[in-house]
Write a protein that binds this DNA or RNA. Structure first.
Lengths: 132, 132
DNA sequence: AACGTTATGTAATAATATAACATTTATAAG
DNA sequence: CTTATAAATGTTATATTATTACATAACGTT
């Protein structure tokens, strides 16, 4: 059963755009791209983005103020996210590594704080950019 | 030998403010607080922030668009940062856990990408907020 | 002193995100 | 099927965060 079926009109338009783009997209670039579909105002975009983030269909790349479709089909909620970001070409991909996620989900320090969520961003040069 | 001695006038004013605040500060709040010291424009603040981030005196909390003084005296460059963020009171503290940093610094996946930097943000409720 | 580098000052503007309010559509309960 | 409620939409205005462009000044080397 796919969550996509539950998406509203605007949510679906915006999710499809991000998903098809294959990479991170910024809010105003999304806006520009969906104006022909009748979505005219920033708030319409941000509301759809908020909802899509909430249900885990997309993630926000915080360091880039951009949004990327979730590449992990089993991920329903965005409570544990990790990304690799190329600082040269800005390619982003979601890391799904069960050892990493297990390690971070179970992480606790001496602060007495129980973490319910994390977001990790790795930076470096991707294979292509490194060989240039 | 302290890096602080090398700071320029504006950098020192802004670092001292953030450091004394004990928590994360936002750029325009910093601007407001340093206007009496002659720093009048956003750009003056952002330039100092950029430099302070670059040399590792402060870190940016990406999910909050805020800046916090580095709480790890040995940290000279911001290549490996981890924070715990309370989603209720917005308290932020830097995590210095050698096992965690070792694990993440050595992390590699099958993408062929070598990571030179990471930033991790944990979210949850701090002790105080949990007990409310 | 001459040079290159780093920092500063200032104005304007770009990019990112939210508030407030009115209306419509979808979902569920009786 | 209709009433109630929640979720989504539409629209305008505005708040917040960050950068461009250009001119000048201070600092560190040789």
């Amino acid at each position: 059963m796919q969550k996509e079926l539950n998406l509203s009109k605007n949510q679906k338009i915006i999710f499809d755009l991000i998903d098809k783009s294959g990479g991170p997209m910024k809010a105003y670039s999304i806006l520009f791209n969906v104006q022909k579909k009748g979505i005219k105002a920033p708030l319409q975009v941000y509301r759809a983005l908020d909802k899509l983030v909430e249900i885990g269909k997309i993630h926000k790349i915080e360091s880039r103020n951009a949004f990327i479709a979730c590449q992990n089909s089993s991920c329903q909620v965005s409570k544990a996210t990790a990304f690799s970001i190329c600082e040269s070409c800005e390619n982003v991909s979601e890391i799904s590594n069960s050892k990493l996620s297990k390690y971070l989900s179970n992480f606790s320090d001496d602060s007495g704080m129980k973490y319910s969520k994390y977001n990790l961003e790795f930076f470096g040069l991707c294979k292509k950019c490194k060989s240039k």
